[in-house]
Write a protein that binds this DNA or RNA. Structure first.
Lengths: 122, 122
DNA sequence: AGAATTGTCAACCATTTGGTTTAGAATTTT
DNA sequence: AAAATTCTAAACCAAATGGTTGACAATTCT
């Protein structure tokens, strides 16, 4: 069972809700990068990018290692697995039969509501 | 390929980032419910719950059908599939070998930094 | 020693979020 | 017709988000 009430899920989904942070994660999937690397492609100031990294850290999606004056960041995939685990609970909803059943029910209930009368065109 | 730059992904992940909304989706996975049904178990005012439903609608995770004075809500799973699709790009990171390689690299680089000294307690 | 690089911090700002309360519209029930 | 139910709208509020700039600390390069 997967719990809905979960501050860590809150933080993970929130972290994933901003494109800049998703772009950062994408780069980190390929390896380690420091803040300058991560900030460079984003059209925002350095401090702004730094804040995004901290959001990723709070969600435990990124870990930081200080080497000299550079802060090297590494992705930590576990929270992504948790998010995926939550989504898994809905997989059957978007795969196969449910979709069609959904559409069918929709049609039936719409007819029920209109009582067979339609206001097509006239 | 899955794009990181995507306002609709923004909205979906944002919608999933609040426990009240995840709880609502959980109920909607079982069928149709009106706003009162959805609001009842949540410890917040009715208008607050209503706003959460609107967030779910903006993310296209919920569709609403007005029947008399009640607003019936239904889950629409497609955006969940999209979110899942985005996460899929990271699956290998949390499954299997990558995790162990990650830990190994971590250890190696920590040693590098500490110059072979560890603080293992024993 | 001096300059450049990397990153933090603090202050500030506008907007969004998440909640409240009060009022009212629409529909159903009695 | 009157009352109850379901839901929206508007006004308001505190806190969080996402961004900026300017100053500064630490480290590395020359």
């Amino acid at each position: 069972m997967v719990k809905d009430q979960s501050p860590s899920l809150d933080r993970v989904f929130h972290a994933l809700a901003h494109p800049a942070r998703r772009i950062m994660l994408r780069r980190l999937a390929a390896g380690e990068w420091n803040l300058s690397d991560l900030a460079a492609p984003l059209r925002m100031s350095f401090p702004a990018a730094s804040k995004h990294v901290r959001v990723l850290e709070r969600a435990r999606l990124v870990r930081r290692r200080v080497v000299g004056r550079t802060h090297l960041c590494r992705i930590a995939a576990k929270p992504l697995a948790d998010a995926n685990g939550w989504l898994e609970g809905y997989r059957q909803l978007w795969e196969g039969a449910f979709q069609r059943l959904d559409a069918l029910l929709d049609e039936l209930k719409t007819n029920e509501k209109h009582g067979g009368q339609t206001k097509h065109g006239s």
